[in-house]
Amino acid sequence: MLAQQLANGVLLGATYALFALGFTLMFGVLRVINLVYGFYFTAGAFFSLWLAQAGWPLIAALPAAAVGAGVVAVALDWLLLTRLRRAHADELASLMVTLGAVLALYAAATAWLGPDIRRLPPDLVGGGAVDAIGVRVTFAQLLILAACGALVGLLVLLVRGTTLGLAIRAMAEKPDAAALMGIDTARLAALVSFISGSLAGAGGVLIGLNFNAIHPYMGEQMMLRGFVVVIVGGLGDIFGALLAGLLLGVVEVLTAGYLASGLKEAVGFAILVLVLWTRPAGLFGRADARRA
């Protein structure tokens, strides 16, 4: 029972981590608190739904939906945030602008698509499962885990192992100095938006798959968890977000399993408050939390 709960928790947490990674990357590099981020999650989920309904296999629908969400992210960030960045506006300004924008976007999406919960076509993933040491894991869950692992690995490889990643880290630390080096910071910012949006979109597809429920406001519910993960992990800290995401997934599943299902969100926020009280720089608190 406990082993099964832990497995479910890790699987859920992997998706949280994936989602939070994009958010923390965006904050760490572009220094904006982008609340529209949750909308990219919704967008990814709906893109995958539509593609699946059009008969695409998941292996193609997942990357296409992620790319679609990335494109939406580039467009919206450019529209909402370029001016703020150019004016060197502070984080509060980005918070307010994106809060207004995301509420409008959710309302518009709901008006257009309706508030109902949609289901993915039943044959999208085989219904099989594997059993090992008393733990049962469905194919869908395995696929989620593999996709999360691959995307996280790719991101870390990009940021830590390439010259492009080096430029991203330089821009995260000192955007003006990076521009003086000849780095096209506007283009790099768009690339970071794209990567973040794609991660959110992929997260949307995978959570849609995990719970088989897709609706316009799903990004907002996710955003609350994203906040918990990103703050507990330390804003801007990739590895912190990874660990905190897994942690939150496990805690939620254990709470739902052993206490009460309705309490799982409360526990997440209790952790958030505790961490902010005791370790404001995040659980794995390094003094400079802005590490992309």
């Binding site: 080096l166 880290r169 330089a170 630390e173 000192k174 003006d176 100095a177 003086l180 400079d288 590490r291």
Partner: peptide, 9 residues
């Protein structure tokens, strides 16, 4: 001014 080296790199 102020060197602006990338301290974390």
């Amino acid at each position: 001014e102020g060197r602006q080296i990338f301290a974390s790199l």
